[in-house]
Design a protein around this nucleic acid. Structure first.
Lengths: 167, 167
DNA sequence: ATATCACATGTGAGAAGGTACATTTCAACC
DNA sequence: GGTTGAAATGTACCTTCTCACATGTGATAT
């Protein structure tokens, strides 16, 4: 459902090919959400048959572009108005539950690795400025930025609480 | 992988039955991660065959208790030392990408619903105090709490930026 | 006594997702 | 003019997740 809506949403913003979509998800490029791979092509078929998107152009190298139709945009709005799935699954959070199973030295390694990762993400996001490069994505940019800032604060606080000589 | 490790981790802390595990995931009880249902029973078979957990007792009502074996605890430590999957998929974040597709009034509704949800979660977590009810889960408690605080801040800031008469 | 409800364990079917592979097309380089 | 490599689309397979169903047990209440 989520991937389908993500595709629909991107195709509502502008026409794209499956390849473009794939790359949008792939890298930290859009920095918004994670990377399913070729499911894009799989997920394109269904909304195409349902009339939510339509092929707009055939380019070189067999390139097929798509854009959301009126029905697609309506479906997207519908979904946006529906109740979100607030379920969160984030592996580092699961790991935090069992942090204390590690001896202090390894715990510090783990926390330091987390800290470094979160700091790197945050640096990229903060380099984007207040508005970010893509119009209309300021809310998402700030949400993700807030997320990584919270994660970074957490890792640093936990590190500070775990002296190298503990345990 | 995540569910398997979660089970293994819980069984490393204390012996439990499948039913206990199920409820641990189910409710906001542990408040740490989300709710897969009866896969617990399916997921118990594999580590049992692999010798990572062992049956410890047969109780009334056909109750079967399990605990992690030495090999299980080793596997868990191994996993804890391995590189985390930092991929995040959180539906509200995806929705934030397309927030601007909604007219201002509906956008405010959406943000207000998010704010209420985040505030409720945070209230529960803050009621748990600094250490929380379960020993060894302070790190997780603080991580989740930081997460919801960031989400709440975000929702409130976005709401403040979306005046009722905009658009 | 019996009805009900929480405890407790599972199965089966189908959808979704992940990994890896397989193929064609054009451009650019040497 | 042949090789390489990115652009581009897709399939096959296997695992995981979700949803719904199916079954037995013991305590408590009426």
């Amino acid at each position: 459902m989520a991937l389908r809506m993500a595709i629909l949403g991107l195709l509502a913003e502008r026409e794209m090919s499956g390849y473009d979509l794939m790359r949008e998800f792939d890298r930290g490029n859009s920095l918004i959400w994670p990377a399913p791979r070729n499911e894009v092509y799989r997920e394109l078929r269904r909304p195409l048959e349902a009339g939510l998107i339509a092929r707009t152009a055939l380019g070189a190298r067999n390139r097929k572009s798509y854009a959301a139709t009126g029905a697609g945009i309506a479906a997207l709005r519908d979904w946006m108005g529906s109740a979100p799935d607030y379920g969160l699954s984030y592996e580092p959070m699961l790991r935090s539950v069992f942090l204390d199973l590690l001896p202090a030295a390894e715990r510090r390694n783990r926390l330091a690795a987390d800290r470094d990762f979160f700091a790197a993400q945050l640096a990229v996001l903060e380099a984007a400025g207040e508005e970010g490069p893509i119009p209309g994505r300021r809310p998402a940019l700030h949400m993700v930025r807030g997320f990584y800032r919270a994660m970074l604060d957490w890792a640093e606080a936990e590190l500070a609480r775990t002296p190298p000589d503990a345990n």
